[in-house]
């Protein structure tokens, strides 16, 4: 049975915190790489995300890891991840708490 779309997207966003950016060592949600997570009543999830650097060799892995993590959430039937560089990521997008933790200003 499909969950409420809002709850499902919250769960996906939560599980995406298990995916870390290998270079910075922070999860992709707190890092601000996940721009949008949407779910519909059928359990289809769409993620819009970016990477810290365009052309980064980790891009494919981060995209695949996000899909794998999202698909592991109960109620998710399929996941589609879209990469975007508009707007390009910058350090001001990092979560304030995480910045303090990582010594980033």
């Amino acid at each position: 049975m499909a969950s409420d779309p809002q709850t499902l997207s919250d769960h996906v966003r939560f599980i995406l915190r298990s995916v870390i950016d290998p270079e910075i060592g922070l999860n992709i949600v707190d890092l601000g790489l996940v721009y949008d997570v949407k779910a519909d009543s059928e359990g289809h999830v769409s993620i819009v995300m970016t990477t810290t650097t365009r052309g980064c060799p980790a891009t494919g892995y981060l995209k695949q890891a996000s899909e794998d993590a999202a698909n592991s959430v109960v109620g998710v039937t399929s996941t589609e991840t879209q990469l975007t560089y508009d707007p390009p990521w910058n350090p001001s997008m990092i979560d304030e708490e995480a910045k303090k933790e990582m010594g980033i200003q």
Partner: peptide, 22 residues
């Protein structure tokens, strides 16, 4: 270390905990 991380841990990322490059 960065290339090593990608080769070893890239494929398991999102399915199990992975170390940082550092």
């Amino acid at each position: 270390p960065f290339l090593t991380w990608l080769e070893s841990f890239g494929p398991i990322l999102g399915r199990m905990p992975a170390p940082r490059v550092q």
